[in-house]
């Protein structure tokens, strides 16, 4: 918000962000802000953008849509795809905490493999979420978005920089921000930011920027910051079953391999 400045109009999805900040009759928002439904901030933002154009007010404000991972990758996917395809001048921000957290941490399309959620519980016959995380930035890239970036609450300065940069592009922009959910991930609130950093510094959550379909920048992991995935997995209750049931070590190995593959693919390691 600080990065975008006061001349914005925000379309928000249903979620913790809306519930916590706008309980009637109060509001935390000092910029024009609208919440309609869970699955339509992309379409509402589209309506705002075309209305500004139609009224000759397009210089008045930048339009930002905000939603969670479920609202973006699952239930709002059609609306989101439509917004991208139509080429609206909108920055879409997805807060990715890897589950439907507002309703009590159920599985979403962005829940990583082997993570336990309330609808993908782990037990002797299940390793939690059985499917891999949907590669949303790649899907957005396939729409021909002007600017795509991933970021994390682990590095707020990175978010600020990317919001500022995104807003210099005309057309649809996408920013996916990795955000730990304290109760959902089963961690102490104090270590939430550290966990977000481990996700990056293990290679599990690559931080990069794409302009017109090409990766232009990645956040390098400094040698001294590099951690194994276990540093990230172990403190989280959503991965506790990997340490409880026999065969868990194979799954941890596979997760490590996925992290290593990311490091290789995006060239994440600093020289």
């Amino acid at each position: 918000m600080e990065a975008a400045g006061p001349d914005v109009i925000i379309a928000n999805a249903t979620g913790c962000l809306e519930v916590f900040t706008t309980r009637f009759p109060r509001s935390s928002w000092q910029v024009p802000w609208i919440h309609s439904l869970f699955e339509n901030p992309a379409s509402v933002a589209s309506g705002i953008e075309v209305a500004l154009k139609a009224l000759g007010r397009e210089d008045e404000a930048k339009v930002i849509a905000q939603a969670g991972d479920g609202g973006t990758a699952d239930i709002g996917m059609g609306a989101f795809s439509g917004m991208l395809e139509r080429g609206h001048n909108i920055l879409y921000v997805c807060y990715d905490n890897e589950a439907y957290s507002n309703t009590g941490f159920q599985r979403s399309g962005l829940t990583p493999k082997d993570a336990l959620t309330t609808t993908s519980p782990a037990g002797p016959t299940s390793w939690g979420n059985l499917t891999r995380k949907k590669d949303l930035p790649a899907i957005v890239a396939a729409h021909g978005a002007a600017y795509i970036a991933t970021s994390s609450v682990g590095y707020p300065v990175d978010i600020t920089r990317k919001v500022k940069k995104a807003l210099t592009f005309t057309g649809p922009k996408y920013l996916q921000i990795h955000c730990p959910c304290v109760p959902g991930w089963g961690i102490e609130s104090a270590i939430s930011v550290r966990m977000a950093r481990y996700a990056i510094n293990s290679g599990l959550y690559p931080i990069f920027e794409m302009e017109y379909g090409k990766i232009t920048k990645v956040r390098k992991i400094k040698k001294e910051d590099l951690v194994g995935v276990e540093e990230y997995l172990k403190p989280q209750k959503r991965f506790a079953h990997l340490y409880k049931y026999p065969g868990g070590e194979e799954h941890i190995k596979a997760i490590q391999a996925a992290a290593d593959a990311n490091i290789e693919k995006y060239g994440l390691l600093a020289e």
Binding site: R26, S27, S28, V31
Partner: peptide, 10 residues
């Protein structure tokens, strides 16, 4: 229509 920035007093 809700007034902006009114949560501060909480």
């Amino acid at each position: 229509v809700v007034q902006p920035g009114t949560t501060r007093d909480q």
